[in-house]
Every structure is written in structure tokens, then in C-alpha cells.
Computed example of a mutant assay.
Amino acid sequence: MAPSGAWDPSGYLRFAGERARPFADLLARVDARAPSVVVDLGCGEGALTASLADHWPGAVVTGVDSSAEMLAAAAAHARPGRVGFVRADVRDWRPDAPVDVLVTNAVLHWVPGHAALLRRWAADLAPGGWLALQVPGNQAAPTHVLLAGLCRSPRWAGRLAGAAPAADAVLDPAGYLGVLEEAGLAAEAWETTYLHVLTGADPVLAWVRSTVLRPVLARLADDDAAELTAAYAALLREAYPRRPDGTTLLPFRRVFAVAQAGTSR
């Protein structure tokens, strides 16, 4: 599942290190010893998916994504018999066999009503299998609030009100804990706010251009997209001022949950 408009793997990878940190923190809480079937739902450009094969050398790893652009980049990380990629919407995907580890990283905020999806995925786990999720939890951050305000302003509301970032796109940790426990899993959930130190001109704009801004710009012609981007960039520079050393600090909240199925299902 992805929002409208083509993904840009190169733009997304500009901050590959910062985006990989939550994935590593999530994986550290998955205590699967020797899984055979590992699935990464919403795998993107595939580098992190391939790292799962290194983490669990005996596993066959499948990455699933709906973006042709991301999967084209992911092809470079395929390993015959070990790591493969398929194109599918995560809402429609079903496994061929019970899954030992199901990972979904920075995906579910694009999927309205994804609590029901988590319950279905819980049922797809093998006995003792693990489900691990991470979502951005920054809907109240200036990046999202300012963009939502622009989308709903008189200048843009007629075309962009429906594309404004949703304030309820994700649950809080307690919400995910409840969903997973109600699905019969033993779960834990937490949140972390990362402080990313960014460099370059308008680095926060560069960060959001490949994520929350992308479906907004997809609705506009080039001239209008440039106008909105300029207005948004000015607001971001005020909300995230450059520090004396020339860097810009971006606080980024993320929500995590891991859960394990019972050993008899």
C-alpha cells in the first residue's frame, strides 16, 4: 500500500541512515531464534529487507510492496533462494504458508483502519511466530500540522483538503498493544523520539518531500506544486531553524510494537 504518486527511491535513500535506525531498534526486540519464513510488508527499496536474511541466515525472506519504482530498486538486493520481492498491496497480500516473522516498517500510517489488518496478520503467524511494526507518530509535529493547514487553506482546499495529513493516521502505543492482545498475541509497545541532525539547505523539506509531501504534490501541476512547496519551505524554516553550526534538528517520534503468537494455534 502506498499513497498516490510515484515513489522516488533516491530521495528516500538520502536519509537512509536515519530511516534505518528505527528498523534496527524494532528488530532488536524480536526474539525469533531460527525462523524459516520471514516477510517484510511494505519493503520499499529492499536494503533493510535483505538485512533480515543476514540477521536470520536460515530464513527465506520475502519483501512485498506496491510501488514499481521501489521494487525496481529492490531488485539489486535479491538473492536467489534467500531474498525475493513481490508486487502487492499489503491490504490484499496473503501468505502461502504460516509466517514465522512478519515485519512492517513505516507503512501502516498510509493504511486507514489498519487495526483490522493487524488482526488478520496475527492469524497468519505460525505457532510462536512474531509480528513487528513501526510507524511514524509525528502527526502533531510541525511537519504535518503546517502541511495540513496549507492543504485546508482557502488557496488550496478545493484540491488538497482530502490530501491533508490525517491527525489519526496511527494509534498510540497503548492502542497497538490493545489491538495485538485482542488478537491473541503476547505484545509490548513503546515510542521513541529520535533527534535527527540534518544538513544542507531546507533539509526538513528534503526529508518530507519523499514522504508526507509526496501525495500532496501529486495532485498539482508543476507551477502550483512549486508555489505550495515554496510556502511550505518558508514555514518549515521558521519551525525548524538552522542552528549556529549550520545543522537543523528534526525531532521525529515513532511508535513500535512487537507481539508473539502462542506456541499452539
Rank of each mutant, 00 (worst) to 15 (best):
A221K: 15
F252G: 01
G262M: 10
A163E: 12
L102H: 07
D8K: 07
L228I: 09
T192V: 15
S153A: 03
A123G: 11
P95F: 14
R94N: 12
L235Y: 00
A206Y: 01
D31M: 15
A72T: 15
R265L: 13
E69Q: 13
L213F: 03
R19Q: 11
G81L: 09
L185P: 02
D168T: 14
G46K: 04
E181I: 08
A88S: 14
G137A: 09
L131G: 07
P215F: 05
G246W: 07
D124G: 00
L118S: 05
V170Y: 05
L150V: 01
A123H: 03
A169I: 10
G58M: 07
V111P: 14
S4G: 15
E238F: 13
L131S: 02
S153T: 01
E181Y: 10
L108N: 03
L249T: 08
A141H: 08
A75Y: 14
C151E: 01
A50H: 05
R82E: 13
G44Q: 02
L117I: 02
G158K: 07
A132M: 06
D54T: 13
L177F: 07
L195K: 14
Y12M: 02
L117F: 01
R79W: 08
R214P: 10
G17V: 07
A234G: 15
A230H: 15
D223V: 11
R120Y: 10
R91A: 01
P127Q: 09
A166E: 10
G200W: 10
G128K: 09
H55K: 15
E191R: 14
S67F: 08
A20W: 02
D54G: 13
G175F: 01
G137I: 00
P173Q: 09
S264K: 12
G58Q: 09
W121I: 12
P173A: 09
F15N: 00
A72K: 13
P112T: 04
A122V: 07
L213Q: 04
T104N: 12
A161T: 10
